[in-house]
Amino acid sequence: MFSRKDPLHRSDPIYAAAFIIPTLAVIAFIAFWPLGQTLYNSFFRFALMYPQSKVFVGVSNYGKLFHDPRFLNDLWNTIRFTIWSVGIETILGILIALMLNKEFKLRGFVRAAVLIPWAIPTVVSSQMWRWMYNDNYGIVNTLLMEFHIVKNPIVWLGFPSTSMPAIISVDVWKTTPFMILLILAGLQMIPKELYEAARIDGANAWQRFWSVTFPIIRPTLGIALIFRTLDAMRVFDIVYVMTKGAANTETISVYNQWVLFTKGFIAPYFGYGSAISVTIFLIISAFAFLYVKMMKIKLD
């Protein structure tokens, strides 16, 4: 064993601190400081234009939130968006990952190709889809009319019944590859012997999935779900580019942007906007906590 006097292996709190402190400082500066600032702002009533005239109002901004029909409606929109997009992405992700885990020709090529939608910046893909959904010159309507499925073009982004599904489809298209990638990594950790043993015991394909595959990929799936749910709950770019929140597609982040910038610039709503930001943060934390508990993920 190493001697305690060996300078390379002694535990030196000063060295440890010297290496950790810069990292902590950076995290504190870019994450905790703005978060603390937002929390602090959320207790005041003021406009961004007149930061000198701040009035302390305690937690009343948070109380107002629950009487703001627009916030509640947008919260419901966000939850709808999250359930549908993350649900579809997870199911598609598992199915495609299982397929890509099999041996076949060009597997490497297909695995790389699947990642393309994920590599395109969200703003670009949202703009691209906005054009595809265009009622006059969009490919979606052209195809539907070509095959005589509809007579008149559908204005996808104009109405509540179609605009939310259209937005969800963009998110599914864009982030299913991320799900596939993570689940595939989980699948590759499963030793082949386990399947052999299961087969010998007479387990059918469904039993093999539930008793062998699923328990082993569950932690990976849990991490993937946390990432995706947190992302979906704070969705901003897709909605902002495609509809700006029209046709009842406004999510809490889009509303937050409006309150903080347009409204809170001149009218005393910047504190209220900060309260919305903090609430979004709390809701997302609650979801993350729930997942960690449900999926029995060990974080340490």
Partner: peptide, 14 residues
Amino acid sequence: PVGVTTYMEEETRH
């Protein structure tokens, strides 16, 4: 067209 509910200046000009 029903689509005017999604048009800005440039969409109408196109």
